[in-house]
Design a protein around this nucleic acid. Sequence first.
DNA 1: CACAACCATATTGTGCACAATTTAATTGCC
DNA 2: GGCAATTAAATTGTGCACAATATGGTTGTG
Lengths: 151, 151
Amino acid sequence: MAAQEAGPRLDDQVCFALYAATRAVTALYRPLLDDLGLTYPQYLVMLALWEHDELAVNELGRLLHLDSGTLSPLLKRLEKLELVERRRRADDERSVRVTVAPAGRALRAKAVPLPGVVGEAMGLDERQLDELRRTLRGVTESVNDYRATLG
Amino acid sequence: MAAQEAGPRLDDQVCFALYAATRAVTALYRPLLDDLGLTYPQYLVMLALWEHDELAVNELGRLLHLDSGTLSPLLKRLEKLELVERRRRADDERSVRVTVAPAGRALRAKAVPLPGVVGEAMGLDERQLDELRRTLRGVTESVNDYRATLG
DNA sequence: CACAACCATATTGTGCACAATTTAATTGCC
DNA sequence: GGCAATTAAATTGTGCACAATATGGTTGTG
């Protein structure tokens, strides 16, 4: 009954399944996003900005679970592409507000078909996609709560 | 009926849920793996080697879906830590076979409790974990097949 | 007002991922 | 045997992630 193996096995790990699935999906996005001139993390930032139109760096970080070490250089690249604008707030010079530039707004139309393509490639129906998303959000929240009890 | 939004929304994206869950789980692993002196990708490599004892770099790449650009420097770091050994095959000098060094074998015992901790932190029971793993593997395979048809 | 505590962002350094190229060895074909 | 095609790793360059630290601005307290 007891496993002969003296340790954890690669294929038993849910974490590896997660890791592999994430990389497969972002690899699928890559050629599609190439047409928009974006990387996948840049695409996520644009998604957040298209929805909110204006966000401080720390608000973006809260939405995407990313810190300034990741976001600062990424936002500079988006700025150089003229997709976003960054401006220090007049009433609090510590804070940088990020807004969508005209070229960034125009890009949104090209992003509309992406989720459809990716959803189809995943081979799940609407209900399964919904359940997977719910499960993953539960895992994320549960793991982050658990981490908070340690750190 | 039709969405008012003119584009995809961040929270609707299964891909973002995947991305967030993967990063949360690897962040949970990080302090645990610090005790073993490993990063998460290095841990995956050790998992594969503990199971197979000897693998060529391209076999390792097939198992983990990684290429030599990622694996070569990673394996050199593991070699410097004296956890693995790398040796060119005598009968085919192109191929590098990677084996577990004594210190790497000893490390396996310390890795045994990890999956239990992580499983618990995810807040899913055995059956749910199993289903999630199966779903994720299906997604990975389906997406990779889809990518292959694009070429 | 001075100044410590705090806050938001930026910078530095390490280690993945991955595309593209390079190097070196092997195989296939004549 | 000679030589093009193929194969396996390694290298180079870009862009995340993230820890640790630095920079500069703001707030609270005496």
